[in-house]
Each structure stands twice: as C-alpha cells, then as structure tokens.
Amino acid sequence: MLYFIADLLALGAINAIMAVGLNLQYGQAGILNFTYYTFVAIGAYIGAVTTMGHPPVPASEETFILQWNLPWPVALVLAGAVAGVLGLFMVLVVIRRLRSDYLAIVTVSLGFIVWDLITNYVPLFNGANGLFNVPYILNGATASEITYTLEVFGVAMVVLAVCVWVVRSIFRSPYGRVLRAIREDEVVAASFGKATTSSRVWAFVLGCVMAGLAGALLVFYVNAWNPQGFLAEESFILMAAIVIGGPGNYWGAVLGTFVFVELLSEIERYLPNFGNGALVGAGRAVLIGIVLIVVIRFRPDGLIPERWLRWYRVPAGGGQGGAAGSQSRGEPRRRLGWPWLGQRSEI
C-alpha cells in the first residue's frame, strides 16, 4: 500500500511537469499541440541513450545512438534541451502559416511521423523493441523499491517546482499578458505591435523543454521505454487533464493530472472487463470521455478557472503595492502625468 502511494506520487509529479508545460502551450499561448507526448518520448529516449553507456548495461542486443555514459543530471538537462530544439524546429515549420485548428492537425501528423521513424529505424532507439535496462539514478540500483520511488518523487518535485516557478513568472509578467492577448485575438495583439510569432514560438519551446525533462525522469523511474509508451492517446489524456483542471491556470494543470490521470489510470483495475482484458483500456477511454463532457458542460473553465489567479498582483518592491491593490484598500489615488484625464463621467 505504501509503495502504491509512493508510486502514485512519483508518477503524479512527473505527469504534473508535463501538464504544466502543455498548459503553457495550450492554456497560455493557445497553441493546440496534440503531439505533446512525442516530446516526452524524445526526452525519455535522450535520457536513456545518454546514460546507458557503451556497451549497453548489461551487454544486450540493443542498438541505439550515442551510447554515452553521462551523469543523470546532465542527461536530464540534455533531454530537455533536445526536446526544446525539436520543438523549435517543429513550431518554426508550422506556426507562421497556420492557425489553431490547422496547426493542431499538423502536430498530430508530425507526431505520427516521429513515431513511425523511431519504430522503424532500429539503429536510432532500438526500434519497436525499445530501450530497457536504463540505469537507475541516485542509489536506485541498491536501494529498496519504495526508497527509490520516493527519491524519484523528490527529484520530480524539484523539477516541478522549477517549472511552476517559470510558468508562474511568465503568467504574471508582461510576456504572459502578450501570450494571453494572442490567444484571445491575434489580430488585436499584432495591431498593438506585439511580437506575435516569437512570443508563441518561445512558449511552445519552453513547453517542449518541460516535456523533455518529464520524459527523462520517467525513463529513469521505469528504466525502460518503447514506442508503445507514447501512443497518440497519451497526448489526448494530458490535454483532457488540462481542460478538466482549468486551462490557463498552472495549478489547474497540476490538479488535473494528479486527480485525473492518476485516478483514472488507477480506476482501471476496478472496471469490469466484460470477459476480455483488452476492453479495460477502452473502458478507461470511455470514462475519460464522460468526465470530459461532464466537466465541459458544468464547469467550462475547468476545476480551477484561470480567473482565480490574481491578475493584478504586482511583485513586491518599491513599497508602493500594486496600483489596483492600493485602490481596493481605499488609499488616495495617485495620478501620473495625465492630469487632463480629470473629469469623471459615469455611463
């Protein structure tokens, strides 16, 4: 039971990293990326091949590129970087010409291209058999299963904290506001001179970096990875988690994954199998669909709507407090350089 909870926590933290990244892309920047899990997979593969060494540990039939033997923190950073660079390539191809729905379709097809490439080109990441015997990180080789799980959970929480910090800073900054403006109406954002393309590109790339980090942590945790691990379905489940949690709100993303992805993957064991084990997965997919419909019907902004975040809180410093803050506290209003705007008129 204790192990079960630890496992839930570790996987939950890793999934939350993905959700925070995807939420930056979809919730904040409004880019529908239906192949987010591809970047998770890229991170996982890079994390694996840069730590497995040469010859692979222990000597096996696996063939794959690099075969480096880097310390795991380096591999983790590298995984994030590679996912980010691939994300950059992808987004540069699609974003200039395409808008929301079309862009989403292209992300789906690019995801399939990557999947087919990895599955069929064996020298890259050992093809459909995938990579196994990925080394443990920290003292995982000798520690008990539950200790290792908790260690991974700790590392994942640190990474998650960094990701949440980044997304939170962006959310509160002028950059976040530009992203939301583009999401609401790109023409308006451009009409006020905002850099629409580069803003979205960087949000996308940052989201992909987070996917890569999560992927590497996942592969360090489960010690194996193959193409069955990143079917298109996974991206949709993550997307559903965000819609349910509250798109645009980073806490919503975290909650959405912990509650939704975790509970639903655990609920699988309680679903009836109708005499056919394969139906359980289908039952889960149906359940996800039902939950999604219910949430969209009754709470269209998700469990934690974006507006619950405090819009106007200006970071401390300067001793003034935010302008809106001082307003609500009833302090006299200061006027800066616009004395001509004196007269008040109410509609």
Partner: peptide
C-alpha cells in the same frame, strides 16, 4: 520591459516597477 520570455523571468524588478 518584460515582453520577452527571458526578460519576464530575469528582469522582474524592472518590469514590476513599470507595471505599477
């Protein structure tokens, strides 16, 4: 200030003053 991703993370005090 702070309309770029890096500025938003590392120029916090500057854009905060501007924001007020």
């Amino acid at each position: 200030i702070g309309e770029g991703p890096l500025q938003s993370l590392f120029r916090r005090s500057r854009w905060a003053a501007q924001e007020r």
